[in-house]
Amino acid sequence: MPIHDSASKGYEAGASIYVSGRPDYPPEARRWLGEVLGVGPGRSTLEVGAGTGKFLPLLEDCGGHILALEPVEAMRDLLARDHPGVKAIAGTAEAIPLPDASIDVVVCAQAFHWFASAAALAEIRRVLVPGGMLGLVWNVRDESVPWVAALSAITDPWEGNTPRYRTGEWRQVFPAPGFVFAGECRAANRHVGKPEQVIVQRTLSVSFIAALPAGQREEVARKVRSLIAATPELAESETIAFPYETRMFAYRRTE
């Protein structure tokens, strides 16, 4: 299955800054993986849309057999380089090259909105064992903070028809045949670092921004740096904390 242009072009071009520009995940996400999804020793877990492997440290810390599916070659290459203990697989959510009922847990971190379809869910259900778990995870920026809302106002006009968590369109595929909702968990999160890293690089790693021609990307970066310069709490601090909320959704495959 083809993948969206924003993903194929943007992540191919922006793979190198994806890891540093994106936030990690809070301790609550690690507990959720073990206690709700059951990721751990003796269990097999597949991350679909694994990107460069940003979420993999949490899965590796839980233990068990970890596999990572990623369609964009540049991101998959970085994943394989940085996580040699994880098997990196080429493929899409609609065509997972694994046997039926071979996986205990499927996780999609920052990814499900790209392939939220009946076909993808049917394929995920196929590879899950009966009673297996599907976990969906997103780091969502806290736009109640004025400068975060101003940042979104700079980037959002460029989104076009790019699938995003914030539109809520991914929810339309649920309820889905073969899955039952098993709960939602939320946790505060922060990405701490220099403004250039956690704001500018984060912005440039957004798929539809990374896919822009060089001149337009530079214009976006200029506006973001101007926002930083005009915001005292950002301009006067060598290190800042970008506020996020991590949202986690669990679904169980029915018999």
Score class of each variant (00 low, 15 high):
Glu35Lys: 13
Glu35Ala: 14
Glu35Arg: 14
Val36Leu: 08
Gly38Ala: 12
Val39Asn: 06
Gly40Tyr: 05
Arg43Gly: 12
Arg43Tyr: 08
Ser44Pro: 03
Thr45Ala: 15
Leu46Trp: 12
Glu47His: 05
Val48His: 04
Ala50Cys: 02
Ala50Val: 00
Ala50Tyr: 01
Gly53His: 11
Lys54His: 11
Phe55Asn: 13
Pro57Leu: 12
Pro57Lys: 08
Leu58Asp: 10
Leu58Ala: 13
Leu59Trp: 02
Glu60Met: 14
Glu60Trp: 00
Asp61Glu: 15
Cys62Phe: 06
Cys62Asp: 04
Cys62Lys: 14
Gly64Cys: 07
Ile66Gly: 01
Ala68Gly: 02
Ala68Trp: 03
Ala68Leu: 03
Ala68Phe: 03
Ala68Cys: 03
Leu69Val: 04
Glu70Gln: 07
Glu70Gly: 10
Glu70His: 02
Pro71Val: 01
Val72Ser: 09
Val72Tyr: 10
Val72Ala: 10
Glu73Trp: 05
Ala74Glu: 15
Ala74His: 07
Met75Val: 04
Asp77Met: 11
Leu79Trp: 13
Arg81Gln: 15
Asp82Phe: 11
Asp82Asn: 15
Pro84Lys: 14
Gly85Asn: 14
Gly85Asp: 13
Val86Met: 10
Val86Leu: 12
Val86Glu: 12
Lys87Phe: 10
Ala88Ser: 12
Ala90Ser: 15
Ala90Gln: 14
Ala93Asp: 07
Glu94Leu: 10
Glu94Val: 09
Ala95Glu: 15
Ile96Asp: 10
Pro97Ile: 07
Pro97Arg: 06
Pro97Gly: 08
Leu98Glu: 13
Leu98Arg: 13
Leu98Cys: 12
Pro99Val: 10
Pro99Met: 09
Pro99Ile: 10
Asp100Gly: 10
Ala101Val: 09
Ile103Pro: 02
Ile103His: 04
Asp104Ala: 04
Val105Pro: 04
Val105Lys: 01
Val105Glu: 05
Cys108Val: 01
Ala109Trp: 03
Ala109Leu: 02
Gln110Met: 04
Gln110Leu: 02
Ala111Arg: 03
Ala111Gln: 03
His113Met: 09
Trp114Phe: 10
Ala116Gln: 12
Ser117Met: 05
Ser117Val: 06
Ser117Gln: 08
Ala119Pro: 09
Ala119Phe: 04
Leu121Thr: 09
Ala122Cys: 09
Glu123Ser: 09
Ile124Arg: 10
Val127Lys: 01
Val127Asn: 07
Leu128Val: 00
Pro130Gln: 08
Gly131Met: 09
Met133Cys: 11
Met133Asn: 11
Gly135His: 08
Gly135Pro: 07
Leu136Phe: 00
Leu136Cys: 01
Val137Gln: 02
Val137Tyr: 01
Trp138Val: 00
Val140Ile: 14
Val140Gly: 05
Val140Arg: 09
Asp142Gln: 06
Asp142Trp: 01
Glu143Gly: 03
Val145Trp: 04
Trp147Thr: 01
Trp147Leu: 00
Val148Arg: 00
Ala149His: 07
Ala149Gln: 08
Ala150Met: 04
Ala150Tyr: 02
Leu151His: 06
Leu151Gln: 02
Ser152Trp: 13
Ile154His: 02
Pro157Leu: 00
Pro157Arg: 00
Trp158Asp: 03
Glu159Gly: 08
Glu159Asp: 12
Asn161Ala: 15
Thr162Asn: 13
Pro163Trp: 06
Pro163Asp: 08
Pro163Thr: 06
Arg164Gln: 14
Arg164Lys: 15
Arg164Gly: 06
Glu169Lys: 14
Glu169Val: 09
Trp170Lys: 08
